[in-house]
């Protein structure tokens, strides 16, 4: 716990803590909000937080962008997290597009993009089907 009172430790780790707060905000939107579009925005925020963590890990104090210069003594930041996150951003937009397409399709069928209303409609549908099955089986046994 002594470390938490040391200003250089706190400043050096502030980034990670802010990333945790951002990630948890995204998770909260996904879990606590019923609107499907908002859930996708929440997922994007969660994802952005992961990007931050990786890029933070690649940063070198006093370093420059990993593009080779003529100066032989130049310090570069680590290029590997950048490559990983480039791929992740492109895959992220692909999954976002798929999620948005699903949302649009759900809206077409259910007429709403609120999770609670969709569940309610599903519930009523199931009850109606069960009632229909019970009615036919009662009729069958009466005929027999």
């Amino acid at each position: 716990m002594d470390r938490l009172l040391d200003p250089s430790f706190v400043l050096g780790h502030m980034n990670y803590w802010l990333f945790v707060v951002l990630m948890m905000t995204g998770l909260y939107i996904v879990v606590a909000r019923g609107n499907l579009l908002k859930k996708i925005v929440g997922l994007n925020i969660f994802q952005a937080a992961v990007f931050m963590l990786y890029i933070s890990a690649g940063k070198v104090r006093g370093g420059t962008a990993p593009i080779l210069t003529d100066n032989p003594g130049e310090a570069y930041s680590n290029p590997l997290p950048h490559v990983l996150i480039l791929t992740a951003i492109v895959v992220g937009i692909a999954t976002t597009a798929l999620g948005l397409a699903l949302t649009t399709r759900i809206n077409e069928v259910y007429g709403t993009i609120e999770e609670d209303e969709i569940l309610e409609i599903d519930h009523q549908e199931t009850e109606r089907e069960v009632a229909a099955i019970l009615a036919t089986s009662a009729q069958d046994s009466a005929n027999a």
């Binding site: 990007f51 890029i55 940063k59 962008a65 480039l86 492109v90 937009i93 948005l100």
Partner: peptide, 24 residues
């Protein structure tokens, strides 16, 4: 944080394409 390529992609894809898709 020195990740210029990532910044480029994020500005184009994150702020551009994904906003357009969500508006749609």
């Amino acid at each position: 944080m020195d990740a210029v390529d990532v910044a480029f992609t994020e500005a184009a894809v994150g702020a551009g394409i994904s906003t357009v898709l969500m508006l749609g």
